[in-house]
Design a protein around this nucleic acid. Structure first.
Lengths: 182, 182
DNA sequence: CCCGAATGAGACAGTGATGTCTCATTCGGG
DNA sequence: CCCGAATGAGACATCACTGTCTCATTCGGG
C-alpha cells in the first residue's frame, strides 16, 4: 500500500487552496495518510511547500506548452493560456499569497516561466495587438493576480466555474469598457 | 506620553503590508511601544486585525466618498476611485490575503462597500459604458485583486509607484488589447 | 506462506508566539 | 512639586505546531 507522493501533493494542494494555514496533521488527514508517513515523504512543511511549488511550476509550464504561446495572435494565445491554466489556478493562487507571506526567495523555476509570459505580452505589443502603455511586467503580474482572483471568486461562489476562463481572459484583454467593433 | 491608538494602527498596517506574518512583538516594536502596551490597547492579535479592518473600511469608504462614484462617467468614476485608493492599497492587499487565509467571517462593513462598488459597475453597464458580459460582482472582485497586485508590484519594484494608478485603472477599464479610436 | 518494508498510532521534547502578570520607572496634569 | 496614570521590561504559564522516535500492525512480493 505504498503511498503515491503525487497523490499526496494533489490532496495537499486541494486543501491548502481552501485553507492556506492548514497544519501538517490536517494535510496528512486530507491525503488519507498519517502524519508520520507524511513526514517520511516530505521532510517538513517547507519541503512540502517547495514540492508544491515544483508541481505548480511543472503544471503551469505544461499549460504554457499546450497553449502554444509562441504561435498565432497574441491575444488568442493569452486566452488559450488562461484556459489551459484552469486546473492549476487554485494552487497558483495559494502559492501567490504564500510568496507574499513568507519572504522566502522565489523559486528559480518561476523566473523562466515569468520570462515566457512576459515574452508573450512583449510579442503582442510588437505585433501591435497590445497597447504599449502597460508594461509587460505589469501585464504578467496582473495575469497572475487575476488568475488568483478568479480562482477565489469561483471558490466563494461569486463566479460560476464555467465562466472563470472567460471572465479572467476578457477582463485582462479587453477590460471593462465597452468597445467599438474594430 | 499616552499612546495614540491610530498611530499604532498605522505602524501595524505599514509592517503587516510588508510582512503579513509579523508577530505581536514585531508590531509593537514597529509602533515604538512595548508588547505589554500593545496588549493594553488591543486585547490580542485578532482584535488588532479587526481594528485594522475597521481602519481600512473607513479609509476605503472615505475614498469612495471623495471619488464621488455616483457622479459623471462611470469609467472616470472608477479612475477617481482607484486614484483615491492609493494610500489604502497596501493595507487592503494585506487584508485581502488575510481573509483568504483565516476563514473568519467577513467583516460586515465590507458588504456595504462591496455594494457601492458593485453599484458603480452596474451603473456603468446600464449607461452603456461597461460591457455586459462581465458581471458587476466579478468586476468588483477584479478591482480588489488588481489593487492588491498593483500594491504588490510596486512594493517589489516591478512597477513605479507613480504608475500604479494608471496601470491598475487602465488594465481594469481598457484591458490589454489595443483599441480603435471610438 | 513468510519476511521485509511500509504504514499507523501515539509518545515526546523543542519551538515560537500568545496572553497575563508584576514591578519599577516615567510622564504630565493639578 | 507630587501623585496617579500610563508605560517598559521582563517573567511566566500556556498553547499549537513541529519534527523525531518507537512499536505494533499490515501489506505484498518472492
Amino acid at each position: 500500500m505504498s503511498v503515491d507522493p503525487d497523490h499526496v501533493l494533489e490532496a495537499a494542494a486541494g486543501l491548502l487552496t481552501r485553507k492556506a494555514t492548514a497544519s501538517m496533521d490536517e494535510i496528512a488527514r486530507a491525503a488519507g495518510i498519517s502524519r508520520a508517513t507524511l513526514h517520511r515523504h516530505f521532510s517538513g512543511r517547507d519541503a512540502l511547500v517547495r514540492a508544491l511549488e515544483d508541481l505548480s511550476i511543472r503544471q503551469f509550464e505544461h499549460a504554457l506548452d499546450e497553449a502554444r504561446t509562441e504561435e498565432g495572435d497574441a491575444a488568442d494565445a493569452v486566452r488559450r493560456l488562461i484556459a489551459k491554466t484552469e486546473p492549476v489556478a487554485g494552487l497558483m493562487a495559494f502559492l501567490f499569497t504564500e510568496n507574499q507571506l513568507y519572504e522566502a526567495g522565489v523559486n528559480e523555476g518561476w523566473n523562466r516561466l515569468d520570462a515566457r509570459v512576459t515574452a508573450l505580452f512583449l510579442r503582442g505589443q510588437e505585433e501591435g495587438t497590445f497597447r504599449l502603455d502597460l508594461s509587460p511586467a505589469w501585464l504578467t503580474e496582473a495575469l497572475y493576480g487575476l488568475i488568483g482572483s478568479g480562482a477565489w471568486a469561483v471558490q466563494e461562489g461569486r463566479v460560476a466555474a464555467k465562466d472563470r476562463t472567460h471572465m479572467v481572459a476578457e477582463l485582462l484583454l479587453g477590460g471593462a469598457e465597452r468597445r467599438m467593433k474594430p
